[in-house]
Write a protein that binds this DNA or RNA. Structure first.
Length: 436
RNA sequence: GGCGCCGUGGCCGAGAGGUUAGGCAGGGGCCUGCAAAGCCCCGUACAGCGGUUCGAAUCCGCUCGGCGCCUCCA
């Protein structure tokens, strides 16, 4: 199994099964419902976990929830705690509907405060961090490899970590230094007391602490959106490595989702929530949509593309509606996934399969085995279809066609087949197919 | 400006020095009372300009265009 690693910009081989494969993926910051773009790392990591497990690996996947930060304070002045708790539930609820199972651990930053504080203390003792004005900052010059992951070297300007508030930047020894702990400010309703006074953790330190808490000092894969490379992941590396932890070996960064050519993001406001997308297209279409593009590449979110994904999902359903034929091989499918988890190619391979068992096994990797399930038509439609079959028997095609129209009006489609009882009722394919 | 990624047939999208990607849409055919589904056939694509090579969509250079990060962000 090979995966592309951002740090070395090359494919890296995973140890052979059973591994272990310990993975940490950066989850969302919760203060509203997550959008479709936020779902990508969740989907990719769950698919990867499922695939590795069925390949005999011992997988431990951690996906955190960031439930404390400035955005959350700002979104719910005075009761940010409740908002974070609600939004965490929404996140679980929405991703649950994808039907891919859950990561092994989904820790929240607010539940990891003791470990965070301990790690900061260790960094201070080691000379890699210093308290200043109630804050604690990481001393970037103390970590020689700073900038390596993101390819920023020797250019201090590009590596600055601006403080959110200008006035606090003078507390820093170096403009590249970043906050590990932030002093409590007026109006912030969630805080903890710690050796440096009342406050709350900075954004990056939580991931260093949570990864270690659940995976130990060294682990195989760290993932997240490519927009996290700098400064988030760069800073995580600085913290953990300075504290003597080996930290992540392979860095997986997924490409962004684009809406009308622009990155879908909360700050730009060009968002489609995962919930809306799920309501409109259904989980199967959404999953096929994600399957169609390599995880590292950006993908566009548009009606046209989703319609195409829906049509593909339908074509898989049709395979199960006709007889199974021994057509297809597992090998090329597995090879595609083992080569940098190329789901687009794996999808192409599955399109050639006519063997029900094989196809179901393939779809199962991606949580799409539901495409194999036949939907039972209402009994009254069953009756109409039977009458239509009789009419056709009598060569009363006018009556037959009338009954067919009636069935179609109810949203179902009759297909004549050889097998008993001579017809098949399937839900009418989505009608947003376009004409030229 | 710095650091990266990318430009593939109507649309989506893999691949990567020489061999059919695949899907969606479209055209033709088989099947069907007519359909639907399925099956068969069809478009001969890789931004542009140079270079390397026996051979490049795949390597190198330049140009044009798009995107991401350098501020919170999956």
């Amino acid at each position: 199994m090979r995966l592309y690693d951002t740090a070395t910009r090359s494919l890296q081989e995973l140890p052979p099964p059973p591994g272990p494969v310990r993975m940490y993926f950066c989850g969302p910051t919760v203060y509203q419902r997550i959008h479709v773009g936020n779902a990508r790392p969740f989907v990719v990591s769950m698919w990867l976990k499922r695939w590795l497990e069925r390949s005999g690996y011992d997988v431990n996947l951690v996906e955190n929830i960031t439930d404390i930060n400035d955005k959350i304070y700002a979104a719910a002045p005075g009761n940010s705690g409740e908002l974070a708790a609600d939004a965490s539930r929404w996140y679980i609820e929405d991703t649950e509907k994808l039907g891919l199972g859950r990561p092994d651990h989904e820790p929240k930053a607010t539940e990891t405060i003791p470990q965070i504080v301990a790690l900061i203390e260790e960094l201070v003792e080691g000379g890699h961090a210093y308290p200043a004005g109630g804050d604690v900052y990481f001393r970037v010059p103390s970590f020689a490899d700073y900038g390596r992951l993101s390819g920023r070297h020797g250019d201090d300007d590009a590596m600055r970590n601006p403080s959110e508030e200008e006035e606090r930047s003078e507390l820093k020894e170096d403009p590249r230094d970043f906050a590990l702990w932030k002093a409590h400010k007026e109006g912030e309703d969630t805080w903890w007391d710690c050796p440096w006074g009342r406050g709350r953790p900075g954004w990056h330190i939580e991931c260093s602490a949570m990864a270690e808490a659940f995976l130990g000092p060294a682990f195989e894969i760290h993932g997240g959106g490519i927009d996290l490379v700098f400064p988030h992941h760069e800073n995580e590396i600085a913290q953990s490595r300075s504290a003597g932890r080996e930290f992540a070996r392979i860095w997986m960064h997924n490409g962004m989702l684009r809406l009308a050519g622009e990155k879908m993001s909360k700050s730009l406001g060009n968002i489609v929530s995962l919930r809306e997308a799920l309501d409109r297209w259904g989980r199967e279409t959404l999953l096929v949509y994600f399957l169609g593009g390599h995880w590292r590449k950006p993908i566009d979110y548009s009606d046209e593309v989703l319609e195409q994904a829906a049509a593909q999902a339908e074509s898989f359903r049709n395979v199960f509606r006709s007889g199974s034929e021994p057509v297809g091989e597992w090998e090329p499918f597995a090879a595609a996934l083992e080569d940098d988890f190329n789901t687009a190619e794996a999808l192409a391979v599955m399109h050639g399969w006519r063997d029900h068992d094989l196809l179901r096994r393939g779809l199962e990797v991606f949580g799409l085995e539901t495409l194999a399930e036949a939907e039972a038509a209402p009994v009254e439609l069953e009756g109409l279809a039977r009458r239509r079959a009789d009419a056709r028997e009598r060569k009363d095609f006018a009556e037959g066609d009338r009954l067919r129209d009636e069935i179609e009006a109810a949203g179902w489609e009759v297909r004549d087949v050889d097998a008993e009882p001579g017809f098949q009722l399937v839900p009418k394919a989505p009608t947003w197919r376009r004409r030229p």
